[in-house]
Simulated assay, not measured.
Amino acid sequence: MSTLVQAGALPSRTAAATDSARARWGRRFQHGGWFVAPFFVLYGLFVIVPVVRGLYLSFTDANISGEHTAFVGLDNYREALKDDLVRDSLWHSVQFTLYVVPVIVVTALLMALIAHHTVHFRWLWRLCFFAPFLLPSAVVGNLWWWLFQPTNGMVNHVLGWDTPWLTQKSTAMLAIVVATLWWTVGFSFLLYLAALQNIPRHLYEAAELDGAGSLQRLLHITVPNLRNITGLVLALQVLASLQVFDQAVVMYQFGPGPEESTRTFVQYTLEQGFTSYRVGYASAISLILFLIIAAVALGRMWLLRDREEAATR
């Protein structure tokens, strides 16, 4: 008899637990769900739906008109793996990333140190360092296109050179790197500045009492305390640099640059989709870039998790 009672009580307990969980989720949704619901709706419409649609198109031979679409399976991906322009454009994006990311990290840190330790006109330093980041990409591209002109450009005028920055292969990518550094370093500078302000002051005071110099305090206090923010800056800059597009196409008048040396992966994707009208093939290429970026992001999360686990041991 007791067994029957216990067996009958078990479903009722399960139902009660389920009802309790539903009640908790209902209360949580009442408190904050209606505030985040518009975001999830817009995120689904403008992110999830396009991603799913692009995934479907990557397995078809769809054109820009959307007519006569046929399923082709993995043919687009096989073609992309054999396409020399895919490899070249991917290498250009990787090359740009290798050039710009280390320079941005070091420059942003130096700028943050200057703005943090400056006594007079501190607000002016911060404004000057961050202001270029607020400019639109079209303005930045056209500005540096004019600055790099060989005859009347300010860069050659100041340096006393006559280098054709935008028309020769050896300097074409360097011009984009310089423009991007000037434009985007302000964001990383702001992250470093906020992190510097959170370092406890008593660490520096104790180091000074022990006779540590400025360089020793920088290497043994500042840099270790900025380790997490440096990892964040590296990850954000790598992900952004792999998607370089705006400044490159504006500076080279929407062309691939001298000897096609500045055609990036995103630019080649758009060329296939909106110039060659091969939407299916462009979707497959864009998905390849998505997988590369996802791998970089997941790799960064994995390294960060291992570091945190090692720190807690």
Rank of each mutant, 00 (worst) to 15 (best):
residue 36 V to Q: 04
residue 287 L to N: 02
residue 37 A to H: 08
residue 55 L to F: 15
residue 284 A to T: 06
residue 34 W to E: 04
residue 290 F to S: 15
residue 6 Q to A: 15
residue 167 T to I: 03
residue 241 S to N: 08
residue 157 H to M: 05
residue 271 E to W: 01
residue 194 A to S: 11
residue 180 T to K: 03
residue 41 V to L: 13
residue 211 G to C: 11
residue 245 F to T: 08
residue 277 Y to G: 00
residue 227 R to H: 10
residue 22 R to D: 01
residue 69 T to A: 06
residue 186 G to P: 01
residue 263 R to S: 12
residue 40 F to K: 02
residue 38 P to F: 02
residue 261 S to M: 05
residue 57 L to M: 15
residue 82 K to G: 15
residue 210 D to I: 07
residue 147 L to N: 03
residue 230 T to M: 10
residue 3 T to P: 00
residue 41 V to K: 00
residue 168 Q to T: 14
residue 104 I to W: 04
residue 126 R to N: 14
residue 20 S to E: 00
residue 140 V to M: 06
residue 86 V to Q: 04
residue 241 S to M: 07
residue 91 W to Q: 03
residue 229 I to D: 09
residue 225 N to P: 00
residue 86 V to G: 00
residue 76 N to Q: 11
residue 174 L to V: 08
residue 6 Q to D: 10
residue 279 V to T: 15
residue 294 A to C: 08
residue 59 F to S: 07
residue 261 S to N: 04
residue 187 F to A: 10
residue 239 L to H: 03
residue 253 Q to T: 09
residue 264 T to R: 02
residue 241 S to D: 06
residue 11 P to W: 11
residue 279 V to Y: 11
residue 139 V to S: 14
residue 141 G to F: 02
residue 157 H to Q: 11
residue 254 F to P: 01
residue 186 G to V: 10
residue 120 H to D: 09
residue 130 F to T: 06
residue 168 Q to C: 06
residue 146 W to I: 05
residue 249 V to G: 02
residue 56 Y to A: 12
residue 261 S to A: 08
residue 181 L to P: 06
residue 72 V to Y: 12
residue 144 W to Q: 14
residue 272 Q to D: 00
residue 124 L to I: 15
residue 202 H to L: 02
residue 28 R to I: 09
residue 293 I to W: 01
residue 69 T to D: 02
residue 209 L to P: 07
residue 306 D to N: 10
residue 302 W to D: 03
residue 292 I to E: 08
residue 21 A to N: 00
residue 86 V to F: 15
residue 174 L to R: 04
residue 150 P to Q: 07
residue 60 T to V: 09
residue 96 F to Y: 14
residue 290 F to C: 12
residue 170 S to Q: 13
residue 63 N to P: 02
residue 50 P to K: 03
residue 131 A to K: 12
residue 194 A to Q: 05
residue 240 A to N: 12
residue 59 F to K: 11
residue 194 A to V: 08
residue 189 F to V: 05
residue 74 L to I: 13
residue 258 P to H: 01
residue 212 A to G: 12
residue 213 G to D: 05
residue 186 G to Q: 09
residue 101 V to M: 10
residue 154 M to T: 06
residue 132 P to C: 13
residue 218 L to R: 04
residue 20 S to Q: 02
residue 155 V to S: 01
residue 73 G to F: 00
residue 54 G to V: 11
residue 126 R to V: 13
residue 175 A to S: 15
residue 45 L to W: 08
residue 53 R to G: 01
residue 240 A to G: 07
